[in-house]
Design a protein around this nucleic acid. Structure first.
Length: 438
RNA sequence: GUGGGUGUGGCCUAGCGGUUAGGGCGUCAGGUUGUGGCCCUGAAGAUCGGGGGUUCGAAUCCCCUCACCCACCCCA
């Protein structure tokens, strides 16, 4: 009998990963607030229709990746595979169209897709998403891209380490026209395309354009560009987005082959990825989804947003050695000895904790040597030694484990006023701004 | 969903038909009596991912299965 493991494609976050994760979450929330976005939380499960009617019937997400189940009352529910549709559902449900527009929202949490796991692709994944609902202003498209890139920069990515690629896929109407053109274009060449592309020719012809297999195929390279089929309004919108990006000093590449996997996108779409470009390389992507709220039964409402994968960010940060470098260590570790030492040490620890210090209780019953080894290995700056002699005298021995400070004996009741040289911490607090390393 | 690779104590890894399955890191205990970091000694911990086969004999060969990884697909 083998013991149970975490479900396939789902992972534990271990203490050694937690610091990096928290750094990413804290930075994401901080940056979102910098742009005056406010947090929204939605349930992990939704009525299945929230996702099934919005993502597009041909999308893989709907075809095979949604975790679907009936609850005990017979309602059809889905584990959320993405955030945007749920946020829009909440926007409608809570009448947010009567708040000042656009409503600026962000969220962070787990999402679920029944997919074959590989590096950077998991069945339970975590996304940070940002949405601006209620405006079609191209400035807001640029604002979101700016916010997203600011996040990456704050996390430590150099500007040239990430590539922003943008495109406009027009409205549903322009796409319908473009698909006709594309179908005529590829029709004579279908036989020479890869099997995947042949399938996509039937199901989602836009995807033929960014097939990796057929990237060198003449018919793909000579394919018409959707940018030539935009309506004047869409083209003007796209031009405005680009102008605003330039005004913000943001470098971008226009890539007319970008399409999105979810049908609700319209006009601006973008992706951000490291130049290396591996398999699951996109770390964040976004776009405009002007039709989504109407599909969900709300008033016609334009909106833009992006989502970025925490795991993929973490993956890239680890590759680059970015993120908090400090090991998390307690300030003080107690070394309880003898009969009465442990109780007195625990009291001393409580005093220090009340003063805001992180104190680890040493394990009683060990030899002093072992206890000191443990204290040293913890990375703490001080060992607090309390044996029977100290317990009886109401004192405590404070031994610095780093630096050349002398060991001293202090009265237990005066512990809260004893000055400990924890300057390293203080400086780091200032330099790291809100980067809490301890 | 398609194709390929990998799977040895908590972690890294040697072994590639006959070994008590070896080492490093880590953990725990010691190196005399209450003081750590180096060093030394010892201990615990592996049915060699799981199941089935071939063989006198399998971690080593074969089959199935599971998990992970890579590419595709898709996507964050």
């Amino acid at each position: 009998m083998t013991s149970p493991r975490a479900p396939r494609g789902m992972h534990d976050t271990l203490p050694e990963d937690a610091d990096l994760w928290r750094f990413i979450r804290d930075t994401a929330e901080r940056v979102a607030r910098l742009y005056d976005y406010r947090q929204i939380g939605t349930p992990i499960v939704e009525d299945a229709s929230v996702f099934l009617h919005t993502a597009g019937d041909e999308s893989d997400i709907v075809q095979k990746e949604v975790y679907l189940f009936d609850d005990r009352g017979g309602d059809r529910l889905a584990l959320r595979p993405e955030g945007t549709a749920a946020v829009c559902r909440a926007y409608i449900e809570h009448g947010m169209s009567s708040r000042p527009q656009p409503v600026r929202l962000f969220y962070i949490g787990p999402y679920f897709r029944y997919d074959r796991p590989q590096a950077g692709r998991y069945r339970q994944l975590h996304q940070f998403g940002v949405e601006a609902i209620g405006t079609d202003s191209p400035e807001v498209d640029a604002e979101l891209i700016d916010l997203q890139l600011t996040l990456y920069r704050e996390l430590g990515f150099a500007p040239d380490e990430l590539t922003l690629r943008i495109n406009s896929i027009g409205t549903a109407e322009t796409r319908r026209r473009f698909i006709e053109v594309l179908t005529k274009h590829f029709e004579p060449h279908v036989g020479t395309l890869s099997r995947d592309s042949q399938r996509r020719f039937e199901t989602n012809i836009l995807r033929v354009l960014d097939s990796k297999e057929d990237a060198g195929h003449p018919a793909v390279q000579n394919a018409p560009s959707i940018l030539d089929y935009l309506s004047p309004e869409d083209a003007a919108h796209f031009e405005a987005v680009k102008r605003h990006l330039e005004a913000l000093g943001i470098a971008y590449e226009v890539d007319p082959r970008i399409v999105r996997g979810l049908d609700y996108y319209a006009r601006t779409v973008w992706e951000v990825e490291p130049p290396g470009a591996g398999g699951q390389s996109t770390i964040g992507a976004g776009g405009r989804y002007d039709g989504l709220i109407e599909v969900l039964g709300g008033p016609s409402t334009p909106a833009v947003g992006f989502a970025t994968g925490i795991e993929r960010i973490a993956l890239n940060m680890r590759e680059r050695g970015l993120g908090p470098s400090e090991e998390r260590a307690p300030d003080v570790v107690t070394v309880p000895l003898g009969e009465r030492g442990p109780a007195a040490a625990a009291q001393a620890a409580a005093t220090l904790r009340a003063a805001g210090l992180s104190v680890r209780n040493g394990v009683p019953g060990r030899s002093m040597r072992a206890a000191m080894r443990g204290a040293d290995a913890s990375g703490a700056r001080y060992a607090l030694i309390v044996g029977d002699a100290e317990a009886d005298a109401g004192t405590v021995v404070l031994k610095p484990l780093r630096g050349d400070e002398e060991q001293r004996t202090v009265a237990a009741i005066e512990l809260s006023s004893v000055e400990l040289s924890l300057d390293d911490h203080a400086e780091m607090d200032i330099d790291g701004d809100t980067v809490q390393l301890f």
